[in-house]
């Protein structure tokens, strides 16, 4: 079970809800993934379009926990404003703090991220902080009391997979709060790899929503995350340079 703040989850896969080719496909992908946590962004409503489809309004909110993000924020102040708006919906207490510091790489601004996280903790939010794979920053965020740390595997939406497994391992090893690998996952092998390294969960969006077949990919990701987790729990064999026989040497037919 995955524990974040005062909530527990059976699924270790969290899904973003952006960029799906169709509303129907999105609903099916979410269902197949068996995720229990869905991320959302907070934006202005088009008040002139009453028919604007909205996934949230069709969800069984007993089944899913909402994880709104502060995407779009470039300062702590903007992130806090978005978080408060999300919370005022009365639907959630979790917030994914995301404060972007660079438009090209979408890498987070560590200073503003820290500031926003501290402020939102003070206000009683369950804070999940999106950060780079900086080991010391992860530690500092944990010391401030964030409820989960979400290091990126590679830039958001890049599908590059895990570019620095060593840093991720350092973060996982030192952390006593959940580590959710967020951003950059390209395929189920990346998800499985992150889970094998000991991550507590995966958050992804583009890898499913922009896949050739989002519904199939949602299932593949679910299995990838499960496979990786099982492997981590089972304990993989150490790597050796030379071969070692699997079949016995005694009883050979001469």
């Amino acid at each position: 079970m995955l524990e974040i703040g005062n909530k527990t989850f059976r699924s270790r896969l969290m899904l973003g809800t952006g960029k799906y080719p169709s509303f129907d496909m999105q609903k099916r992908a979410v269902e197949v993934s068996e995720t229990e946590i869905l991320t959302f962004a907070v934006r202005r409503m088009d008040i002139f379009d009453e028919e604007e489809p909205n996934l949230l309004e069709e969800l069984d909110l007993q089944k899913y926990s909402l994880l709104p993000n502060t995407a779009g924020a470039k300062t702590a102040e903007e992130a806090v404003r978005i978080a408060r708006l999300a919370h005022a919906s009365g639907l959630c207490n979790m917030i994914k703090v995301e404060v972007i510091g660079c438009d090209k790489t979408l890498l987070p601004d560590p200073f503003e991220t820290m500031k926003a996280s501290v402020q939102l903790l003070e206000e009683g939010f369950t804070v999940l902080t999106y950060t780079s794979d900086d080991v010391v920053l992860a530690k500092r965020l944990e010391e401030e009391g964030v409820h989960a740390i979400m290091p990126g595997a590679s830039p958001i939406g890049s599908g590059q997979g895990i570019v620095n497994p060593m840093n991720l391992e350092f973060i996982i090893e030192q952390s006593s709060i959940p580590v959710i690998v967020d951003a950059g996952i390209g395929s189920p092998k990346d998800a499985a790899y992150a889970m094998e390294l000991g991550a507590d969960g995966i958050l992804l969006n583009t890898a499913v929503s922009s896949a050739g077949h989002p519904v199939k990919m949602a299932e593949a990701m679910k299995l990838g995350v499960k496979a990786g987790r099982l492997s981590y729990e089972a304990g993989r064999i150490p790597k050796k340079i030379y071969a070692s026989k699997s079949s016995p040497e005694i009883g050979m037919i001469k």
């Binding site: 973003g16 960029k19 962004a41 907070v42 934006r43 909205n54 949230l56 995407a71």
Partner: peptide, 10 residues
């Protein structure tokens, strides 16, 4: 006034 809602996002 700002009237906001939740939209798809990651």
């Amino acid at each position: 006034l700002e009237i906001v809602h939740f939209v798809g996002g990651g």
